[in-house]
Every structure is written in structure tokens, then in C-alpha cells.
Amino acid sequence: MKEELIISGRMNPRIDPELAIWHWEIPFYLFVGGLAAGILFFASFYYLRGKANEMPNTVKWAPLLAPILLIAGLGALFLDLNHKLYFWQLYTTIKLQSPMSWGAWTLLVITPLSLLWCFSYLSELFPKWNWKQKTLSRFETYLVGKRKILAWIMVFFSVILGIYTGILLSAFNARPLWNTSILGPLFLTSGLSAGAAFILLISKNNFEKQLFRKIDLIIIGVELFFIIHMFMGFLASTQVQIDAAKLFLGGDYTLPFWIFVVFLGMIVPALLEYLEMKGQKIPSYIPAILVIFGSLMLRFIIVNAGQVSRYLY
């Protein structure tokens, strides 16, 4: 037997009995960050491949959501802070070892970037749009000419944003569940798959739909591979990581994880998308919503379970 008890009565709020420093704000922030990363990645990628007119939903419509998501994410991050008035201190240092720091800087770049992108398409998307001011419409014309540069920067930063949402957690070696480098690629693929699902959700264009079904299927396959790999890694590692894996293999998080994230969020939508590709009539919003829901659940479950997994006591 081995039992460790704190006998002096430590009950620090949000630390004891279990770490609960992060509530809904951080998983929400990671989710919207991942989704925005996915949307912006596909938009700039297909723009650079010269598909802007063939795939208007991907390149022009979907990105309209990105700045909203990013601003909501920043809002959630702000709500999470306990010393809110000192928020600006985040932007007085760049600390590369701290993912929270370079993530905050990435957001500072990609949020205005996504706004500029949307700005450059406003007149095209809404022909009745009328800039009341000359300078604004001139600025739009200027941006239209710069789309290529914008797209290049956006491809780059959207991947960083997608990876960051996972690395933020894996930098914390104190929590055995998070301490795996696979979390970066896992969250990146989950964000890409949610982005693809969103495009599927809004697209009326058959070519685009078919393409994104295929893309989503591949990404879900890669995601499943990462998940299996993650558990294999844990089970072959130290005792604390075996314990962390057990949270999902019989422990408290088993049902929510395997049902909501893996079954409903990956396997079912993958099957539905496959059947659709084979010509079955299935409303395509069903798999799309399931994928987005699974991606949200993944963040919530990993953030919560990670706080429960620990070294001591």
C-alpha cells in the first residue's frame, strides 16, 4: 500500500482536491482557434492553387467566420485571466519557450490578417455593398491586389495556430496526459477536420462538397491513427502516463471520450461521408455537425482530464 495525505489541511481553491485552474474558457479558446486555423488554411491553400472561383465557399465565404471565431477566442482567453487589467503584459515580451506567449502573438497576427482577407472580398460577395468613404473602397482595391501575399502569410500562420492549440498543453510536463508531443499534430488535424466540416456545412457546390468529403475522410483517418498512437505511447511509458491513459481505458473519461469524440465525432461522420461519396442520399450537415461537435468535445475532455492526471498523491 502507498498512501499520501496532506495532513495540514491544504485546500487552495482551484488546486485542491484536484487541479481545476481552467474551466470552459481554455478548451473553448483551443476549439475556436483550431476551427479558425482549419478554415483559414483551406481558404489560403486553395486560393494559392488558383481555385478561388471554382471553390467560392472555401476561399471566400467560410473565412468570414474566422475573425468572429478568433475574436471570441481572444475574449474567452481574456475571461480566463485572473489579473485582467495586466492583460497588456502579454504583449511586452516574446518568450519562445512559452507556448502561451507565442500563441498570443500568433493571434495578434492572424486575427487582423483574417479581417483583411474578408475585407478584400466584401464587395465581391455582397454586390450591393457600398463603402461610404472613398479611402475604404480604395483600401479594398489595394487589398485585392495583395491577396497573394496575404494568402502566403495566412497558410503559414494558420498551421502555426493549429499546432499551437495542441502544443499549449503538451508543454506542461507536470500533467502526464498532456505531456505528449502528439497533442500538437492531433489538435492540428482535429482543427483541419472541423474546418473541412464547416465548409461542407455551408457549401452548395457539388465539386467542393465531394472534395471536402474526401479530405475529411483522410484527416479523420490520420486523427484516429494519432489517437491510437497516443495511447500506445502512454502505455509503453512511465507509471504516471499509464495512469493517465487509464483515465480513458476504464476510468472516468472512458465513455465521454470514446462515445463523443471517437464514435460520434469521427467514426459515424466518416461512415456517413463515405456513403455519401458512394451516392447515398444523406443530408451533409449531419456528418459536418458531428465532426465539429467531436472536435469541441476533444478539447474539453483533454483539458479536463489533463488537470486530473498528476504525479503526486
Partner: peptide, 24 residues
């Protein structure tokens, strides 16, 4: 300088930190 983000709390394997009622 502290913004109270909690990153340090999540990163301490000994759970030695806490958020002061004043936010830092």
C-alpha cells in the same frame, strides 16, 4: 507583470502555486 493566466499553475508538478484573491 502577472496576468493570472494559470500557465505556471498547470506546469508545476508539485501544485505549489495558487491564484491570490487579488488575481496574481
Amino acid at each position: 507583470k502577472c496576468i493570472g493566466c494559470g500557465a505556471c499553475i498547470a506546469s508545476c508538478p508539485y501544485d505549489a502555486r495558487y491564484v491570490h484573491p487579488e488575481g496574481f
